[in-house]
Design a protein around this nucleic acid. Structure first.
Lengths: 372, 372
DNA sequence: AGAGCTACTTCAAGCGATTTAGTTGGCCTA
DNA sequence: TAGGCCAACTAAATCGCTTGAAGTAGCTCT
């Protein structure tokens, strides 16, 4: 069906009962296809058809189980009531939560959606928009997915790396998030803080990192470069799960023998990986190191210890994205370019007062967090 | 576009550049649409067209950026190169992992897919197959989703509750899985074992439960009813995450004051919830209670402690499902009714020797596992 | 020179709907 | 009784493509 498929009629199914067509239905009713079409399609002309006839038509449609052919209809209406969702990977918790919200909204409105996971593959990224347009999607939601050209349908993006005219962006307020996270750690007495910077190419990485940086500066806290590590380079980091990336990153941090009493992860999944690495190194969370996640994915409530995190209302953001997209599709040009979402601090069990406050920077502190 | 949508042309986009049509292209080339169609669609007649003409056509198609209209083409070919995936919830780890595998295979073959999460909602379950057929899907993959009628397209099911003629089922060998799990626990000296039975209505619940039951019996182990708990009733249990269900179930178990030194969960997510509940009750895993998961979702490698589990190769199963479906779509009637998948025991850190062996069933043992 | 090939290319119908521009017949009015 | 109007319906074009049947032009063959 797409250009890449040569025409091929060999598909075979056991028993393909011929679907009732408009013509069949019209013949059965001894009416013209026009009349039947008017009432079935809900055309304004339907009102010029006698009520009794309308009822006859609906009854017959029901009886013959008539279902309009979506493809034939498209030829005139140019509408498909479907959209596309592009994500790095269907499977990751962040995307999955968003998609859940998106579907919630779409299914209410009778829209269907195609999912494309590109995993950072350049060809897919380049060609997907076109193949999706071929399939008639009326709009697209880009989750953490780059784009750098105009598309003839409305777009809503959840991230910063989707470029194009007229797109609407749904963004978490990273400034607020950073303040929430940093102040929480400061209140607990942490000064030596490690930061897991998001993967290169991720749509939130730069803004988030910039905002944290700014916030630390504003609070007079110096983040040493040795206490900072990238979660990986895009798209290589897509080959691994975020938890793996977090694990590796935390290990790198530990190898550097630089002390830190708290760690801010890029998201919950990398936080979990990091906690795993800390545990493997014999460090206790939160007694030896406090860890902050970001996102508040459902699992965060059930980890041991439970994850302290900055909450993004992912499901809501998904719904908002879908709603906004439908709004744009239906012609509303007044949709703002940016919809900012407020994050929330969720204090659970992975952060605790800095136990090294008394002997800050002492050798003892170092070794206790450095065994193995 | 679907019957529920009255025809509506109000959709509006900023700038809809007219797509090149076959006719335009043919005019431009001063050829008939037929000729152009032959070569573009890869019809067998293409070979009767002069090579030089073919090249001209391709060049012009490239230049005018011609893309065949998928909907017009469908009218003749009846092919859409798309399938549907029905799941209880896109977001849960089990479905997400399967979908990942499915997508992997489909995207290689140029197929697209619609996802429908029904969350157990009866209307969606009843109507989805038809609305999906309206959209021309050539086959469907049912993940843990009930069905009880024939459909005019091939179906592959991952679970037991999808009924219908000619469907192919991909099933984990629960008998083998049970043997693996039970023997592992027996070798560790566990005799008092609690079991989290899957939610009612889940496609694996009955078979899995039956097989575990049988295996325990065969090994001469009695499972007390008080050490057994259902993860919830379908579809109510769908409102909660599996982790939540596992948490609640483990709490129920603990309230019963019946002792157990090991717990077999229905899946990894419920195992994580259960571990959370055990921890909250002051019990250590695996020192006080060993816990076995099922699935081996990616997170299992990063929990503290790492989860011992029975591995299902979810991504592979997804790929197999998609591959099998495409096979059936292309007319292969020789596909087996059941494809059995072999599970694998993955021993990690949530299982350990029974520390109560010496004072088995003693009061001491009981209280040590019952504090708070 | 006419029949028969071969190598290319096109005509025109049709897929299953929507939609524009009518037609038909009854009734009312002047 | 002609004209106009209205309610109720329809013929035929069209959307963008595929496809079976039908040309056409140039060559060879006898």
């Amino acid at each position: 069906m797409s250009p890449r498929h040569p025409v091929d009629n060999s598909a075979h199914t056991v028993h393909k009962p011929a679907r009732t067509t408009l013509k069949t239905l019209a013949n059965h009713l001894e009416l013209s296809p026009t009349t039947v079409s008017f009432v079935i399609s809900g055309s304004p002309f339907a009102e010029t058809i006698a009520k009794s006839t309308r009822e006859r038509i609906w009854a017959a449609a029901e009886k013959l189980n008539y279902r309009p052919n979506v493809f034939a209809r498209y030829l005139h209406t140019k509408r498909t009531y479907s959209v596309a969702v592009l994500v790095p990977d269907v499977g990751d918790e962040y995307s999955a939560a968003l998609i859940g919200g998106i579907e919630n909204c779409l299914s209410k409105k009778g829209f269907f959606y195609f999912v494309v996971s590109h995993r950072g593959a350049p060809d897919l990224l380049r060609m997907s928009p076109d193949t999706l347009l071929d399939r008639g999607v009326e709009g697209m939601i880009f989750i953490n997915t780059p784009l750098n050209r105009a598309l003839p349908v409305p777009i809503v993006a959840i991230c910063d790396i989707t470029e194009g005219p007229g797109i609407t962006r749904i963004k978490i307020d990273n400034g607020k998030a950073a303040t929430l996270a940093v102040d929480h750690l400061l209140e607990l007495g942490h000064r030596d803080i490690a930061v897991l910077k998001g993967p290169e190419g991720n749509g939130d990485t730069d803004d988030r990192w910039g905002q944290f940086h700014k916030t630390f500066q504003r609070r007079g806290i110096k983040i040493r470069p040795e206490n900072t590590v990238h979660l990986g380079v895009y798209p290589a980091c897509n080959e691994k799960t975020m938890a793996e990336n977090g694990y590796d990153a935390a290990q790198k941090l530990l190898e550097r023998k630089r002390m830190f009493t708290a760690l801010v992860a890029f998201n919950d999944a990398s936080a979990m990986g990091a906690i795993r690495a800390l545990s493997d190194a014999g460090l206790r969370v939160p007694e030896d190191v406090s860890v902050m996640g970001f996102d508040d994915i459902p699992q965060s409530l059930f980890t041991v210890p439970r994850l302290t995190t900055i909450r993004q209302p992912l499901s809501y953001m998904g719904e908002l994205a879908a709603n906004t997209l439908l709004e744009k599709i239906s012609g509303n040009n007044g949709v703002p370019k940016i919809l900012k979402i407020q994050p929330e601090l969720v204090v659970r069990e992975t952060t605790a007062p800095n136990s090294h406050l008394s002997h800050k920077n002492s050798a003892a502190g170092k070794t206790s967090r450095r065994s193995r």
